[in-house]
Structures are given as C-alpha cells and as structure tokens.
Simulated assay, not measured.
Amino acid sequence: MVKAPYVLTQTTTRVLEPSDLDAALAVLDSEPVANAFVASRVQIAGLDPWRLGGEMWGWYEDGMLTSLCYAGANLVPICATPRAVRAFADRARRAGRRCSSIVGPSEATAQLWRLLEPNWGPAREVRPHQPLMVADRLPADIAPDPYVRRIRKDEMETIMPACVAMFTEEVGVSPLAGDGGLLYQARVAELVGSGRSFARVDRDGRVVFKAEIGAATTQACQIQGVWVAPEYRGQGYAAPGMAAVLRYALADMAPLVSLYVNDYNTAARATYRRVGFQEIGAFMSVLF
C-alpha cells in the first residue's frame, strides 16, 4: 500500500518521504533553470535518502510545501523563503556539518551562511556572486568546433586527468584526496556512460577542451566542468567548444541550457556571452 503524503496545517519543516515526490517536483519545476541540478537527481532517485544521496527537507506554509533544502554532499536551498531558510539553518545546525559546500541561489544561500557561520565557520572559501547564465539557441556567428565529441566509455584514462586538473584548479583541492578519488571517478564514469561528457582530443590523445552536462531534466540542463588545457588557452578553442556542447545539449537534452560561473572569471564570462548565454540571476558557493 502506498503511504499517503502528510497533510500539515501549520508552518513547519520536516524530512520528506517518497510519498512526497509529486509535491517536491512541483516546487522544483517552479524554477527549472536554478533547480536543474537537484531536480535531475530527484527525477532519477526519488526522495529515498539512500538513493538520493542525502535528505530532502521540506518547509510548509499553511499546509503547502513551498520550499526545499537538499542535504547531501552539498547543502542546497531551493525556492527558499527567509522563514524557510531560518528553519533549514536550525535543522542543519542541530545535525552538524556533513556537506563539503553550500551552494544555491545567492540570496537564500547568503542568508543560510550567515546563520550557520557562527557554528560551521570559517569556510575555506566563499564565492558570493556567481552569475547564472542561460541559452536557448545556437550563436549565429560562432561555428561549433567539429572536433568536440562525446567521450566513449573506453576513454576514461583519456578524460580523467583533464577532469582532475579542472576540479583542482576550480575548487582548490584535488578530488583524489580522502578516498583516493573513488567517488569522483565514479561520477566521471557516470557522465561518460550517459553520453554527457564532451571533449576535443588532439592526435596525441591529450584533451584540448572539455565540458560536461552535469544535470539534465526535460526542461533545463546545466553545463559544468568547462576547461581548456593551459597550453591551449588564448588560441580560440573555448567559444567554438562551448558552441559544440551547446548544440549537443539543445539537440539531445533540454530546450534551456544553463551554467554558473565565478564573477571574477572575466574571460569565461566573455566567452559564454559570445556563445549566447545571458545572465538571469546569481548563485553563491561556500566551500569547506
């Protein structure tokens, strides 16, 4: 027998259960671009914490589920009102820090961090403004790089060093630390296996440009891990490479393609604008 979802008549927060899936998806679908990362996981795994890789907390206003917070490897506020953020912060404070980062829309994430910093701080790094950008068509004046292609399953040894280099450069720590990279390698393998890892590989087997579609729903997908090998930077590979990945994404994944970028990365922001991405908001990240 399927358990009926809770009906709440008060303002409260609780851990959601599988029977709450439809209500949670309705919240996620209300902002499909900003919520693409979490929505893609929920659509595949549901709300079972073991399959999802974390708990989904729900905030109810007058009996209606209005805000969410994903609490796994990342802590992610979703459509979170100020009252919901306070409730999520209280729950997170009681549970103790288990995540490696807090990431999400900048306003809610900033409030969440202000409430958690006295107990969880200091952070290793805070990135308060990361423009959220979106595109829904190919650029008219930049041809996609014809050499950017999907990475095959037998090319893990080719793509993995580039992924590690990108992650280390972007995050500031190696993904191979701790468990020796087992979880990170599994994640890269998942993206390769699902046809969402793309690269230009030169004749010597070196990755020139790479990017992944890290999350995808029927409404929106999110590009991540954009990287050009240092020795190839400044030679015009980034924009055509991004146009190629954008073409794959629009054709095979979703009608809206998004990404977020550090505000201080002026070169990357300029490249994304050239390819047709426009800023529609901002994310914030707190790294531990």
Rank of each mutant, 00 (worst) to 15 (best):
T217Q: 00
Y237D: 04
D204F: 13
R94I: 06
I223D: 06
V76H: 13
E107P: 00
A220C: 09
N265G: 01
A251S: 14
P49I: 05
Y272V: 07
G241W: 12
L256V: 05
S174A: 07
S67W: 02
L183I: 08
R14S: 08
L21A: 03
R247V: 00
G46S: 10
Q219H: 03
P255A: 04
D22P: 08
G195N: 00
D22F: 03
E107Q: 11
A23S: 15
S30M: 02
D145P: 10
D22N: 07
A95M: 13
D179G: 11
W57A: 04
A36D: 13
A110M: 02
M160G: 04
V38Y: 14
S19Y: 02
A135R: 01
L112I: 10
Q235P: 05
R206H: 13
G195E: 02
A36M: 02
E125C: 08
I102P: 06
G214H: 08
V2P: 08
V27C: 05
P77I: 08
A162G: 12
R187W: 12
R127Y: 03
G195S: 11
P175L: 04
Q224I: 04
V192N: 06
P32K: 01
G54A: 09
R86C: 13
R127I: 06
K3S: 11
D29T: 08
K210D: 01
S285E: 13
Q278G: 14
V27P: 09
Q130G: 04
Y184I: 02
T109W: 05
R137L: 08
R269A: 06
D263F: 02
V42K: 00
T271E: 08
G276H: 09
R247D: 14
A216F: 02
M242P: 11
G181Q: 05
A34M: 08
